[in-house]
């Protein structure tokens, strides 16, 4: 086709986004997943508070410990989020497009004066709105719980770090929403696309951490006589594991919520000369540290959304 299209590709965008967000807020599916997240979050934070109270000490960033402290058998709040955010995002997006096909609403909606762009982008934005609201609520809840039970307010820097962490969580959720929506355009049946997305989630949360060292060992075997090969293998392994958005998210939260984190990769003693061990990094340095991780997740999000976009634009309305 040549020539410019008439009108804006985004007319109707806000209508679709708000309708989708409202639908999600009313759907039993999302209520269930949210309940799960809420219960685990409160549980892990409550356990963390008990732990913090028991081992009270001089810590400049006591409040951040709320998020990162784990008490057996419960994992920490952030590891829960890393595990559950994908589930929320998949629940929001797995039937975005193929659900419209199976409900036979697509041709009716697209016969309205809007472009397909508006429908797909609107659905994505609608999901993001719900995710943003949920994360914000969760964060306020945890902070409130911390203030009440610990009896001390978070400092300015702690809030700034938490907001950065919130943004990282938002981007991470966006990646998984894009995964779910890409499957919803590529696969015709909603049940199959949900299974595909959940499989990918399982691979990245459970199997990827096991697979990465194995594959790295095959690609870059260690030569006992050459110590550099060991370094090389670790670099390969880290590169491989960073394909998983879960790893990127884990590294980003680690650096943001644990200010003493100096590096997310290998560190040689020579690089640490003159450093005060355990001294926290300023916020700007921590942000600099996680920037590649965040940028990587945003890039993944854009690539996945583009896949969904292209496949949706090429689809025939008639399923």
């Amino acid at each position: 086709m040549t020539g410019r299209r008439e009108g804006s590709p985004f007319s109707g965008l806000s209508t679709v986004a708000l309708k989708e967000a409202a639908d999600h807020m009313n759907s039993a599916r999302i209520h269930l997943v949210m309940l799960l997240v809420l219960l685990t979050a409160i549980g892990s934070v409550y356990a963390a508070i008990g732990q913090i109270k028991a081992t009270i000490g001089e810590d400049q960033f006591l409040f951040l410990r709320l998020f990162t402290t784990a008490q057996e058998p419960l994992p920490s709040f952030v590891s829960f989020l890393g595990f559950l955010i994908p589930l929320v995002a998949i629940a929001l997006g797995f039937d975005a497009i193929n659900g419209e096909y199976s409900r036979r609403t697509l041709s009716r909606v697209l016969s309205q004066p809007i472009y397909r762009d508006a429908l797909l982008t609107g659905k994505f934005l609608g999901g993001l709105i719900v995710i943003a609201i949920c994360l914000l609520t969760l964060w306020l809840l945890v902070t409130g719980l911390g203030i009440v039970l610990l009896g001390l307010p978070p400092s300015g820097e702690e809030i700034a770090r938490e907001l950065a962490f919130l943004f990282a969580s938002f981007v991470y959720a966006g990646v998984w929403l894009a995964v779910a929506m890409a499957f919803s355009t590529l696969v015709k049946s909603p049940a199959t696309s949900a299974l595909c997305a959940l499989t990918l989630w399982l691979v990245f949360t459970v199997f990827w951490p096991m697979l990465a060292p194995l594959v790295a060992g095959a690609i870059a075997p260690v030569d006992l006589l050459d110590p550099m090969t060991a370094v090389h293998q670790i670099a390969v392994q880290q590169g491989l594991s960073r394909i998983s958005p879960n790893v990127l998210y884990g590294e980003a939260t680690l650096a943001l919520l644990n200010p003493a984190t100096r590096s997310l990769g290998l560190l040689f003693p020579s690089q640490l000369s003159g450093a005060l061990m355990g001294a926290p990094l300023p916020l700007s340095a921590s942000l600099g540290l996680v920037w590649p991780q965040i940028a990587g997740m945003i890039a993944a999000l854009i690539v996945l959304f583009t896949i969904a976009y292209v496949s949706f634009q090429r689809q025939e309305i008639r399923a």
Partner: peptide, 24 residues
């Protein structure tokens, strides 16, 4: 309809075969 899809769709109503609605 390809160049001016919005103008056309604004003025043409369509009742698809086996119409579907948002059931909820």
């Amino acid at each position: 309809p390809l160049r001016k899809p919005l103008s056309v769709k604004r003025r043409v109503g369509y009742l698809p075969d086996q119409i579907g609605f948002y059931d909820h």
